[in-house]
Design a protein around this nucleic acid. Structure first.
Length: 262
DNA sequence: AGGACGCCCTGTTCGC
DNA sequence: TGCGAACAGGGCGTCC
């Protein structure tokens, strides 16, 4: 489930492979994923131009096109990008493909079609239009504190709300709360200043470490919940107790009842 | 404001 | 063994 670390790794992949090559053709075999732009308009906007830069805010990223405008990608739950050369096998559920003049292609694969493809003149407009809060990784403690202060809901719900703070989803909120040793249903008003500091620091460390490891669960440290899950383990990597499921805001929270108390 | 719910979507997993 | 149901959870909309 692409969340901030995954999307950052995707952005870097596109940045490292796909800039500076003129787009020769645009294929959009699943136009229902294009939110506000037709395949024809997207083709007109991109053809003959190169991508010059990339940006990311929360779980959204953009490839900036030469001469202005940006291709915005959201990966939903099963999306990923892949740059491939002529003759390489293309992924199985390509919803958008840019073919470059040099014969290589950039594919956007999204099997469950829960992703989004948009076209915006300006990436900041997208952030505003979607009502996204500040990017979770660029948020300092001051900003984090201000966002959490005065809120009444559970800590997990707040971490996951994109209009409060953008980038954290179900998987990483579980990890952050596990490492901060906080119960997912802890009401925000129960967190004092030192608890909020710990939460912010843990969030930052979890997100940054995940990015550094290429957002691959099996590359993470064994005391991470994500690592344990990737190895098929259903026990807490710290106390070996069983990991429980709890419905929070319509999503499944995974947590260790022994390590994460209210 | 925030929680509960439903919908979209399809590959995988589960249960009979 | 096989098949259909349930599940997974990003965003988003509605209702209370």
């Amino acid at each position: 489930m692409p969340e901030l670390p995954d999307v950052e790794v995707f952005r870097r992949h596109i940045h490292a492979t796909s800039l500076g090559q003129k787009v020769a053709a645009v294929h959009a075999p699943s136009p229902e994923l294009l939110r506000d732009v037709s395949p024809q308009a997207l083709g007109r906007a991109l053809k003959g131009r190169a991508l010059t830069n990339t940006r990311r805010h929360g779980k959204f990223m953009a490839a900036i096109a030469e001469g202005g405008g940006c291709l915005v990608l959201h990966y939903g739950m099963t999306g990923f990008p892949r740059y491939f050369k002529r003759g390489d096998k293309e992924p199985g559920h390509v919803r958008l493909r840019l073919d470059f003049e040099n014969g290589a292609s950039l594919a956007y694969d999204c099997s469950r079609k829960l992703g989004q493809v948009l076209w915006e003149r300006n990436f900041n407009n997208l952030v505003r239009r979607k009502g996204l809060g500040p990017d979770a990784l660029r948020l300092d403690y001051e900003g984090f504190h201000d966002l959490m202060k005065g809120r009444k809901g559970s800590v997990k719900t707040a971490l996951m709300r994109q209009e409060v703070m953008a980038g954290v989803g179900n998987v990483y909120s579980d990890e952050i709360l596990f490492q901060a040793r906080m119960h997912p249903k802890t009401p925000l008003p129960h967190l004092d200043d030192s608890a909020l500091r710990k939460l912010h620091e843990t969030m930052h460390t979890v997100l940054q470490t995940a990015i550094d490891k290429g957002a691959q669960p099996d590359a993470l440290s064994p005391d991470w919940l994500l690592y344990a899950k990737s190895q098929g383990r259903e026990h807490c990597p710290v106390c070996a107790g069983s990991i429980e499921k709890l419905n929070v805001g319509g999503r499944n929270a995974h947590y260790c009842p022994a390590c994460q108390k209210h």
